[in-house]
Amino acid sequence: MKFFLNTGRTIKQGSFVERKNSPAYLEEASTLRMNPVDMMDLMVEDGDHVSVRSGVGEVVMRVRPNPGLARGRTFVCLGPYANHIVSPETHGTGMPDFKATMVIIEPTGNPVSSVAALMGSCGGVPYED
């Protein structure tokens, strides 16, 4: 299904922003909020994994219901998971479309990567502290 992906700050993201290798950060940054009716349509439940795909890439996240979101809209806190599928195009402004990515979301059995593994997939070398 097609969705609109928005990103932004959350208090949990801010709380763990200096501990990006921590399970708490991983959980917050990889959680995709979605309207519960859309979840029914997708046949996913709270905590299920979904594949989120945009024109520039794909990432696995965990889905969580949020009735405050309109249907067809999703929200992920800013961070490496959301940015994995955000285009670097800035339209001459320096600013990517962080809050306006069209994505296709499907259920998946694939695991959610750690931040280190995600950076590893970008060509980095995971550092485990």
Partner: peptide, 9 residues
Amino acid sequence: GAHFPRACA
């Protein structure tokens, strides 16, 4: 690394 699009990372 966390706050730029993947292509930048």
